[in-house]
Design a binder for these strands. Sequence first.
DNA 1: AGGTCAACCTGAGCGC
DNA 2: TGCGCTCAGGTTGACC
Length: 288
Amino acid sequence: MPELPEVETVRAGLEPVLRGRRFVHVEQRRKDLRFPLPERFAARLTGRKVAKLDRRAKYILIHLNDGEVLAVHLGMTGRFSVSRKGDRDAAQLGEFAHEHGNDAKHDHLVFTMSGGAVVTYNDARRFGYMTLIPEREIAHDAFFRGLGVEPLSDELSPAYLSSRARGRKSDLKAFLMDQRIVAGLGNIYVCEALHMARIAPGRAGGRISRPRLGRLAVAVKAVLLEAIGAGGSTLRDYVQPNGELGYFSAKWRVYGREGLPCPECRTAIRRRTDSGRSTFFCPSCQRT
DNA sequence: AGGTCAACCTGAGCGC
DNA sequence: TGCGCTCAGGTTGACC
C-alpha cells in the first residue's frame, strides 16, 4: 500500500506507542526481509529507547536515543499492527487477521515495548526492509543519498521540476515516480496528481511548459496532503479495530477507476500500461 | 546518460 | 473446491 501518505500515517500511528519507550523484547522470526537484517538485530535493539519518529521519502525513521536510527521501508505489503501485552482479545485478533489474509505466518518481527504495546511487523511479499544506521551517516547511506526532494517541502518547486525535467524524453509519469527526482510518490499518487494538474501522463517530461509544471507541483502537494488528512481523520488514533495501522479508504479521482466517470467531466476513465505499471487517466481532461 | 524491463515474493480475485 | 492466470501501492540491476 505504502506511498508517502501511507508511510506518514503509519509513522504517526507508531509514534504514541514507540516514542519514549524501550524495546523490552524483540522477537525476530527470520533472518532476512528483502535484505538480511543487521547482525544480532534483536539483541542490539533490546533495551534501547526511542527518541522520536521521522519520515524521509517512504522510509520511517525510528530514532533511538543513542544516535542510531532504525530505518524501515514497507515495500509493497509491509504493515504494522499494535496490540497490548496480555491482551485477552489477542486470539480473536489473530482470527480476524487470518480471515483478512493477514496471516501470522508473515509476522516477521514482534516488538514488545515498555508501556505494554506489542508492535508486529507483517510483510507477505517481503519487499520491505529494515536497517540500523548512525544518524549522522544517513545522508551518505546507500538507501538515502540518491533520494530527490521531499514533495511536501518548498524544494518541490516549478523551478526544480523544470531543471530536472529538462531534456527528458521519457514519460512525465516515469519522471515523477523516479525517487531520485521526487521522493515518496508511487503509482497511485502520480496518477492522481497528473489528473489534478490536467496533464497527460505520456507527455515527455522535458516538454511541459513552466506554468504546467507549476500546476503539477501544486497538485502533487494537494493530493498528498489530502491523502494524509484522510488517513488521519479516518483512523482517529490510527489503530483500526483489527489492530492494523495505516490503511485508510482513499477517494481516488482516477486510480483503479477504469470505465468509471471522471469526477471533473464524466468521461470514462481509461487505463493503459506504461513500463509494466497501470496508468489511469481521463482522456478528456488529460488530453495533452 | 537515459530508458526499459524482468526479477524479487506471495496473495487476492476471477473465469472456468 | 480447485486450478491457472493476471494483477498488485516498490526498488534494483542488467541490458539496450
